[in-house]
Design a protein around this nucleic acid. Structure first.
Length: 309
RNA sequence: GGGAAGUUGCCCGAGUGGCUAAAGGGGACAGACUGUAAAUCUGCUAGCGUACGCUUACCAUGGUUCGAAUCCAUGACUUCCCA
């Protein structure tokens, strides 16, 4: 029998952190974070990162593993997560994956196969960027047609306006000689080494939105503004992942004196709600998910989980 | 008290007689998602009907007109300027 790995997923502010710690205490587990922003050091309040105190001695992995200027991808996450799962199992403990980054979780559950990066990839990316610049306004059409000719199946699934994905699909082909479609065919569902049991925290929309608002208000009282200021002063590429983190980018206009604090706070609440909505959409699709009522108290949630593992 | 401008769908906002159930943006809702994913992108948003369609809509009332969000009159409210 494959070893079991527990997943706790759910939208932001649904109570994943507390639930996972309580569960870990109960079942002798250790936690692997599946969160694309909590990997960054120094981004604490804004990412609602768990504090040492909240950890209650439970071991947490894949938090604070990157500098804000570092590049990090699903493939990196997957590799590290597999390592950590192994380590935890070695200790005879239960791995618990906790997070809101749907793609990261899927990379594990679906056991996606990522082709290893090569030195060439950097050049290919650069080359594509150069072409995009040269093509100007026509880039969108030209590159989409190009993808259509090399990987029709992928092209038809990607919206033409989703330029990022079109470019990535092309890069996949140029760096490996295999199209995106071909590469994806390599991943076969259920051929992973583990048996994943996925719990999704489900919460009435208005309750969740209310929690988000409260959480943002609480963040303001912490040092989120200092963190945002710090991040802004790092002078890293505005397009880099860390710079897109919610709870930071919304305050940049305020810090630059372009917008009032109230407006920025409102914006952050709204963006967070939209994000939660996208997460909910993502988690609706996960197969065999077991729903946990987010409005139950912690004991009820824990017993729901224990009954299913 | 006098003068000027304005009032458009959930919000902002374009629209000066038919092609307008009303551009565009935002929000809301729904969806997609294999290397930036807290990113990126799509659909949809008056009501009823499967649909040709019908009904109700651009502050209110009345009028002009074959036809009005668009023109006229009166009223209400808002903003600004002069007293």
């Amino acid at each position: 029998m494959k070893p079991k790995v527990i997943i706790i997923a759910g939208p932001t502010a649904s109570g994943k952190t507390q639930l996972s710690v309580e569960l870990a205490k109960k079942i002798n587990g250790e936690i692997i974070s599946a969160d694309s922003m909590q990997i960054y050091r120094h981004l604490n309040s804004g990412t609602a990162k768990i504090t040492e105190e909240e950890k209650q001695g439970i071991q947490h992995y894949l938090i604070d593993i990157c500098d804000v200027s570092d590049e990090f991808s699903v493939a990196d996450f997957q590799k590290l997560a597999y390592q950590k799962i192994e380590e935890i199992l070695q200790k005879n403990k239960v791995p618990i994956i906790v997070g809101g980054t749907g793609l990261y979780i899927s990379s594990l559950v679906k056991n996606m196969k990522f082709v290893p990066q090569t030195d060439q990839d950097y050049l290919i990316k650069e080359n594509l960027n150069k072409r995009i610049e040269e093509l100007g306004d026509t880039a969108k059409d030209v590159l989409y047609d190009e993808l259509l000719s090399i990987d029709k199946e992928a092209a038809e699934k990607i919206d033409k306006n989703n330029f990022k994905r079109v470019v990535r699909a092309l890069a996949m082909y140029y760096s490996t000689g295999l199209t995106k479609t071909e590469q994806e065919k390599k991943t076969k569902p259920n051929d992973g080494k583990y048996r994943y049991i996925t719990f999704v925290i489900d919460c009435a929309r208005d309750v969740l939105y209310n929690r988000i608002n409260l959480r943002v208000d609480a963040m303001i009282k912490q040092n989120i503004l200092d963190e945002a200021k710090w991040l802004l002063n790092q002078n890293i590429d505005p397009k880099s992942t860390a710079m897109q983190a919610m709870g930071y980018k919304e305050f940049f206009p305020y810090l630059k004196g372009e917008e009032s604090l109230e407006k920025c706070v409102e914006k952050l609440k709204q963006e967070t709600r939209k994000y939660a909505k996208r997460q909910i959409t993502w988690f609706k699709r996960v197969e065999n998910a077991i729903y946990i009522n987010g409005e139950n108290n912690i004991e009820e949630k824990i017993s729901d989980i224990l009954n299913n593992i």
